[in-house]
């Protein structure tokens, strides 16, 4: 699943439609913001990215922030290609961030600048220790709530991205936003400093509700900017181009 196209090595997501949109995959060591409102399929897609990586021999790490990760795994779409052994063998590791906060003694509602550095260092050392090549943080928005100011959010994401790309880890930061949002993230900062933005949404077309996916930005590669319709299936995320005849209307 590692493609070479252009000058950046690719981290194939294993999601056929998305890899096509990205001309082979996410440029390796990019930090990508996967953003959308609730129920649009972000957790499902992010997990699929990790499972395909793990199946392909890349150590993968899921950092759960709001939900207990085991509960998440039990409630997510039962993918036909998921293998229990990936978790047992440690190819796919699930970690709950609240447990990390606790170990680091970060009990207050708001993190200080020093604590941000500690948290970044803790995640980076975990990634190094596990040899993680693919990371998901679900969601980064929940971490941002503990940071409060745009300055701290910027500082945290920049330092985290740097630490992850230094060890060649390709990362997806899941971002929650409201359906009516005019930006691509809750605080408006996250989107500006990530290497890529993938937007998932619900789109209404004459009374039909379609799930959509669109790559807004991706450093290091050409990509389609078109909207795709998405289906979450036990075979994984499937994409089809949004038909334009519908929006032109006749």
């Amino acid at each position: 699943m590692v493609h070479r196209s252009g000058d950046r090595e690719r981290c194939g997501t294993g999601i056929e439609g998305l890899d096509t949109v990205l001309y082979g995959g996410i440029p390796r060591s990019n930090t990508v913001l996967l953003t959308g409102s609730c129920g649009t399929g972000k957790t499902s897609l992010a997990l699929e990215f990790l499972i395909h990586g793990a199946l392909n021999g890349e150590n993968s790490l899921f950092v759960s922030v709001t939900e207990n990760s085991e509960k998440m795994l039990a409630n997510i779409i039962p993918y036909n290609f998921f293998e229990e052994s990936l978790v047992k063998s440690g190819k796919l590791v699930l970690v709950d961030l609240p447990v990390m906060y606790e170990r680091l003694g970060m009990t207050k509602a708001e993190l200080t600048m020093e604590e941000i550095d500690l948290l970044v260092a803790a995640i980076a050392s975990l990634v190094r220790e596990l040899g993680t090549k693919r990371l998901v943080i679900d969601s980064i928005t929940s971490v941002c709530y503990k940071l409060k100011t745009s300055e701290k959010i910027r500082d945290f994401i920049l330092k985290l991205s740097k630490a992850l790309s230094d060890v060649d880890c390709t990362s997806i930061l899941v971002s929650e936003m409201s359906a009516q949002a005019s930006s691509y993230s809750m605080f408006g900062v996250e989107e500006a400093i990530s290497d890529g933005i993938v937007l998932m949404a619900n789109m209404e077309r004459r009374g039909d509700l379609l799930r959509t996916l669109q790559v807004i930005k991706m450093r290091g590669t050409m990509h389609s900017r078109a909207k795709y319709v998405l289906d979450l299936t036990p075979e994984g995320v499937l994409l089809a181009p949004l038909l334009k005849g519908g929006s032109a209307g006749t």
């Binding site: 039909d208 319709v229 299936t233 075979e235 519908g246």
Partner: peptide
């Protein structure tokens, strides 16, 4: 859901082909 969701027709066909 509806015959106007032609993209979803493509996606379901794709899904069944994979199965």
């Amino acid at each position: 859901e509806s015959p106007t969701m032609l993209e979803n027709v493509m996606l379901k066909v794709e899904y069944l082909i994979r199965l």
